[in-house]
Amino acid sequence: MAPLLELRGVSKIFGGGMFSRANVTVAVDDISFTISEDNPEITTIAGESGSGKSTMARLLLGVASPTYGTVLYKGKDLNTMTRRERKEFRREVQPIFQDPFESYNPFYKVDHVLHAPAKNFKIADSQAARTTMIEDALMMVGLQPDETLGRYPHQLSGGQRQRVMVARALLLKPRVILADEPVSMVDASLRATILESIQKLNKELGISVVYITHDLTTAFQISNNIMIMYKGSAVEAGSMQKVIQDPHHPYTQLLVDSIPQPDPKIAWGTQTFAGLASEGGGALDGCKFADRCPKVMDICHTQMPPLFQSRPHTVASCFIYQDSEVMENPDIASSFVEQDGIPDVV
């Protein structure tokens, strides 16, 4: 299984410097993660604000460089790529951002965000061919070209704007799409259509998608595998079905338990827990979740738990599972279930 995009032992540390060790924030803490070339999937990275999930996206996009470790695309380190390789990477790994209002320049028509990258990456030989490709991309995400092109961003709804962004990513025929909270600012009734178009890109065009979110309900619907982050570390990862329906790590349990279910008959979770995520997440000994964990043990304060293979296709970084084997391969994606495209209907 050849890796397409790969994080190898990556850490990203903000702040600090030679004389101020106190204010260090470890946004991403020694994570290895691959997106495979052969099996395009939708993978979720989830966590609360401050968990490091957006920093993960920035590292994968190559807009932030790691403090330690390497980011590789098709086996080549992003830092030592040639210009030509870098340009290929830029075309093949496309972002979709959270805010469909800030991704546009209000003075340009929406055509601009489609034509500019199309020209830059020379995806078509002629103006006419380019226009056809743009129209095809818009139709693919469920927009009518004649109702969309020629308009200014403020003339489109949030949902339409976000779909134009999906079309833009699609236009460049990418291998990987990184969607950072693509629906959190869009109305509930329009979320489904955007997620649907992202799912379609994955199924029909074989594009790998990394779906970064705090919303576990949409993640559950769209993807097969999940990685839960807490203060920069992966605390649990593996098959979406198992992680959500029977979470192993106490933090995942808390997170899943806190989600209000849209059914008045399912009572809101009753799990008790202490406090909130403390600021930062610096050089602590032991488990980062120990101060809030209802099942905390003595060992949690002194040692950092490794990822235990707590059951097939799930790893959890918690000493509750210390009798299980420690995950050998540091690559978190190696715990994932392989499925093609369509999630099973239960």
């Binding site: 509930a188 009734s189 329009l190 979320r191 489904a192 259509t193 997620l195 649907e196 799912q199 576990l216 309900t217 949409t218 559950f220 619907q221 959500i244 329906q245 899943v256 279910q261 849209p262 059914d263 999630p343 099973d344 209907v345 239960v346």
Partner: peptide, 14 residues
């Protein structure tokens, strides 16, 4: 259109 954890379904947008 509400997603739930009980079953995976096709997205039903409005």
């Amino acid at each position: 259109s509400l997603p739930s954890f009980n079953k995976k379904t096709e997205f039903n947008g409005i």
